Amino acid sequence: RGFLEKAAVKKMAKAIMADPNKADEVYKKWADKGYTLTQMSNFLKSKTAGKYDRVYNGYVIHLD
């Protein structure tokens, strides 16, 4: 289950990176699912340092 969630989160993160207008909708879905910042950090780990920082930081702001 965790692997599928991670894959889904990364897919949506890539969608945000391609079209930032989708961010609020995606952040709301993640918040509704109760994803914590720790979970998001783990889901968005990448071999490329900083690749998903913008998405993660946007989610931090959304939760605030």
Score class of each variant (00 low, 15 high):
residue 24 D to F: 11
residue 41 S to L: 10
residue 14 K to C: 12
residue 16 I to K: 00
residue 3 F to N: 12
residue 29 K to N: 12
residue 42 N to W: 15
residue 42 N to S: 10
residue 61 I to A: 15
residue 62 H to G: 02
residue 59 Y to S: 01
residue 23 A to F: 02
residue 53 D to G: 04
residue 63 L to I: 07
residue 55 V to Q: 01
residue 22 K to E: 07
residue 5 E to Q: 08
residue 58 G to I: 03
residue 20 P to H: 09
residue 44 L to C: 03
residue 46 S to D: 14
residue 64 D to R: 15
residue 50 G to A: 05
residue 61 I to C: 14
residue 56 Y to M: 10
residue 20 P to K: 06
residue 57 N to M: 12
residue 36 T to E: 04
residue 53 D to Y: 05
residue 38 T to F: 10
residue 13 A to E: 00
residue 60 V to G: 07
residue 32 D to F: 07
residue 20 P to Q: 09
residue 22 K to C: 15
residue 20 P to T: 05
residue 22 K to A: 08
residue 35 Y to F: 06
residue 5 E to C: 11
residue 28 K to R: 13
residue 39 Q to E: 14
residue 36 T to F: 03
residue 1 R to T: 13
residue 34 G to L: 04
residue 64 D to S: 15
residue 46 S to N: 06
residue 64 D to K: 15
residue 18 A to R: 12
residue 30 W to I: 00
residue 4 L to K: 14
residue 35 Y to H: 03
residue 20 P to G: 07
residue 58 G to P: 03
residue 28 K to V: 06
residue 10 K to C: 10
residue 14 K to Y: 07
residue 61 I to H: 13
residue 42 N to L: 10
residue 17 M to E: 05
residue 14 K to R: 14
residue 38 T to E: 15
residue 39 Q to V: 07
residue 26 V to G: 03
residue 33 K to E: 09
residue 56 Y to W: 06
residue 24 D to K: 10
residue 52 Y to A: 02
residue 46 S to Q: 06
residue 47 K to A: 10
residue 41 S to N: 10
residue 28 K to Y: 04
residue 30 W to E: 00
residue 57 N to P: 02
residue 24 D to P: 14
residue 31 A to K: 08
residue 7 A to Y: 12
residue 38 T to P: 11
residue 8 A to D: 07
residue 11 K to H: 09
residue 11 K to D: 08
residue 19 D to M: 05
residue 3 F to R: 13
residue 42 N to Q: 13
residue 10 K to F: 04
residue 39 Q to A: 07
residue 54 R to Y: 12
residue 48 T to P: 15
residue 38 T to N: 11
residue 45 K to Y: 09
residue 43 F to W: 15
residue 6 K to L: 08
residue 43 F to H: 04
residue 33 K to Y: 11
residue 57 N to I: 10
residue 8 A to Y: 12
residue 2 G to S: 11
residue 18 A to F: 08
residue 5 E to G: 08
residue 10 K to W: 06
residue 53 D to W: 07
residue 47 K to D: 15
residue 6 K to E: 09
residue 6 K to N: 07
residue 2 G to Y: 12
residue 64 D to A: 15
residue 31 A to M: 09
residue 45 K to R: 09
residue 50 G to L: 04
residue 41 S to R: 14
residue 9 V to D: 00
residue 44 L to D: 02
residue 9 V to Q: 01
residue 24 D to Q: 12
residue 6 K to H: 11
residue 5 E to W: 05
residue 10 K to A: 04
residue 20 P to Y: 08
residue 44 L to F: 04
residue 63 L to K: 03
residue 18 A to G: 07
residue 7 A to V: 14
residue 54 R to Q: 15
